[in-house]
């Protein structure tokens, strides 16, 4: 997988199977497979078109792009919250059409249930466990996010960062194979965000779920991801893929980090620039252009 693949494939003729648009690492069976995924709304708006993505076990992929390029739509389709107009999503080979036990989600807002205390929220999704098992898992998760002392507090008593930590713990405690995060830190200040990045990576290192995180923050993408996939809007498509290739923990002032940020910025820049010039003006003429 190289940085250039995304750009190269734009010039290729469209394969008949349409599966050639995969942004993939290229080896092993993917945990998460997205093939030819499209979403058209009832009013004819095309939110996503022909998305292909495969993500390996334990890999962290960041989807990046401006608003309106379908990042959240894509995540909701993978989560099974919405139905695709075409194409498939598979987790471990099983098609996803509705929320799946192996797929966890952290939303942009914490979405904690205000009538449950912190521990109750963390354990909300745990089913089929004995009381003791449940309590142990919740206690462990609370400890990992540094909220052991706060299990009995109400969500409204927590700061925004703490609430989002609880939401992350709630997702992790169910031990998902694939964890989807939809701009989970976008409402937080830079200091809080940095702390949460570390805790997220901490939790991830324990069970190594596959993570797809949507963000519009290049620094966040480079800090967290193995691969950064750039999306472009109208309709939402995957553009270039940038492999980060840095070991963890990552040092944000290292030259290699800076270089990775520059590569992502350059890819973002390319995804924005040709949009007006070489993109087809209307869907009808697209076939000819391809």
């Amino acid at each position: 997988m190289s940085v250039g693949q995304g750009r190269a494939k734009r010039a290729e003729p469209r394969p008949a199977s349409r599966s050639g648009t995969h942004a993939t690492l290229g080896q092993g069976t993917p945990v998460l497979l997205v093939d030819d995924l499209s979403k058209t709304y009832a009013d004819g708006t095309r939110a996503l078109d022909g998305i292909g993505l495969s993500v390996q076990q334990g890999e962290i992929v960041a989807l990046i792009g401006g608003s309106g390029c379908g990042k959240t739509t894509l995540l909701r389709l993978i989560a099974g919250l919405d139905q695709a107009s075409r194409g498939v999503v598979q987790v471990d080979g099983a098609a996803i059409r509705e929320p799946h036990p192996r797929v966890g989600v952290v939303f942009q807002e914490p979405r904690l249930l205000p009538w449950l205390d912190v521990a109750g929220n963390v354990g909300f999704g745990l089913a089929g466990l004995t009381r003791a098992e449940r309590r142990a898992r919740v206690a462990h998760a609370l400890e990992r996010i540094g909220l052991s002392e706060h299990g009995g507090r109400w969500p409204r008593e927590l700061s925004g960062g703490q609430q989002q930590r609880v939401a992350i713990a709630r997702a992790f405690v169910a031990q998902p194979r694939v964890l989807l995060l939809d701009e989970p830190f976008s409402a937080l200040d830079a200091f809080t965000r940095k702390g949460l990045h570390e805790q997220l990576l901490d939790l991830w290192a324990e069970s190594k779920p596959t993570i797809v995180i949507v963000t519009h923050d290049v620094g966040e993408a480079v800090t967290l991801a193995d691969r950064v996939v750039v999306m472009r809007p109208r309709p939402g498509r995957l553009d270039e893929t940038v492999a980060i290739g840095l070991s963890r923990p990552r040092d944000p002032v290292a030259a290699t980090y800076e270089e990775a940020v520059r590569r992502v910025l350059a890819a973002l820049d390319r995804s924005l620039r040709p949009a007006a010039a070489s993109r087809p003006p209307a869907p009808e003429t697209r076939a000819a252009w391809w």
Binding site: P99, H100, V105, E109, L113, F124, G125, A127, A174
Partner: peptide
């Protein structure tokens, strides 16, 4: 949005009504 949390954890209709 809270109902969606229930869907993510695959609550049945009854559980959704009772717990959310």
């Amino acid at each position: 949005k809270l109902v969606e949390v229930g869907r993510i954890f695959r609550l049945s209709r009854l559980a959704l009504a009772r717990r959310i």
